Amino acid sequence: MASPSKLFLSLFLLFLFNPANAQGLKVGFYEKTCPSVELIVKKVVDDTMSKAPSLAGPLLRMFFHDCFVRGCDGSVLLNSPTNQSEKNAFPNLSLRGFQIIDRVKSALEKACPGVVSCADIVALVARDVVVLRKGPSWEVETGRRDGRISNLTDALLNLPAPTSNISQLITSFQQKGLSVKDLVVLSGGHTIGTSHCTSFSNRLYNFTGKGINNDSDPTLDPNYIVRLKAKCKPTDQTTLVEMDPGSFLTFDNDYYTLVSKRRGLFQSDAALLNNGETKAYVRLHATSQGGSFFQDFGVSMVNMGRIGVLTGAQGEIRKVCSKVN
């Protein structure tokens, strides 16, 4: 039986991150104060995707990386004069597209000064880039306010690592009030975007840490290992590799086909085959072009968008997304 202190902590986390406690969020929050908000966001995103479609993956990841650290409060956008904010943490160094968030914010400040939060902008942009990459649409709840704190250590402690096993992933998501299904559905976001070799090279070289150069992860398809080694040398820190080879700019269910064939790029992808519920979901969508993945993804994105939000009089509405007022 759990100790009273552990039981209290579990109940506290459930209360803190339970979607039912995201009071103040609703679809159409800006209906009267900034009725054109979604059109303005879409216009900037449309322009961005026409010129730089590869930013879709990073902008989707930005929402995830924001929500998992201090909740969906725009804290990942804040700069630090001493490079100690969330964006300076190693897991966030590969995030790109901050200038797109700034462009959206500037356009909204002209139309509706001091009304729309940066946290809501991140949520809306994530939805719009998915749609433009032929993925699903969903109604985005808005009404978040911006946090004033951004700490590098918080990001290191809260963002699931690409080397995570299934137990670590489930625990990480449950601590944020997300289910096992949310975990496997949101992992499907890896269908778009790229990754630096450093995020998975441990699976290619010296996997057991014994100093053997050809010691690779046995859960990774051997033929895929050969292809990845051709792109990523042991010390490569700059090369980008497609997470979903062949369709990394298209939001589809090919990710699950890759994972089922042991070609998921990260250990955290491969881990989805080590749990009955996640494995069943992977297998379902690896063999069916139809199914519920698109609908499920929208639901899980809404669930994630409710993590630890600031609403009402909490936080602030930043004038510039990279700094507090």
Rank of each mutant, 00 (worst) to 15 (best):
L59H: 08
L156Y: 10
G143F: 03
Q267G: 13
L132E: 14
I100W: 03
C67R: 10
L60Q: 12
F293E: 04
C118W: 12
L55M: 05
A161N: 09
G315T: 00
I166G: 07
K26E: 14
S54C: 01
F293W: 13
R148E: 12
P136R: 11
V184G: 10
P136V: 03
S172C: 07
E38V: 13
W138I: 05
I307T: 15
N158R: 13
D128E: 15
K134R: 14
L95Q: 14
D66T: 12
D120H: 11
L16M: 14
N223D: 14
Q289E: 12
V27M: 02
F17K: 05
L156H: 05
A56Q: 12
C118T: 08
A270W: 03
V259F: 10
V185W: 02
P162F: 09
D217M: 09
N18I: 05
P136F: 05
P53H: 07
A56H: 13
S179E: 02
S164V: 00
M1I: 03
G290W: 00
P222M: 04
A56S: 15
S195H: 11
G135Q: 10
P35F: 01
S179H: 06
L159R: 08
Q237R: 13
V45E: 06
L310Q: 13
K261F: 03
D244N: 15
A107N: 15
P4K: 03
T191P: 01
K210G: 07
A119F: 10
A119K: 12
K233I: 04
S247Q: 14
S167A: 05
F68R: 10
P113H: 08
A161H: 11
I100G: 04
G291Q: 08
K231T: 02
M49K: 10
S288N: 15
L39P: 00
T82I: 12
V309R: 02
K323S: 06
G193I: 03
G246S: 11
R145Q: 11
L11W: 04
T142Y: 03
E86M: 14
M62T: 12
F294T: 05
A126Y: 13
T238H: 10
L7T: 10
M243C: 08
E38I: 11
D236Y: 07
V44W: 01
S172W: 06
F90S: 14
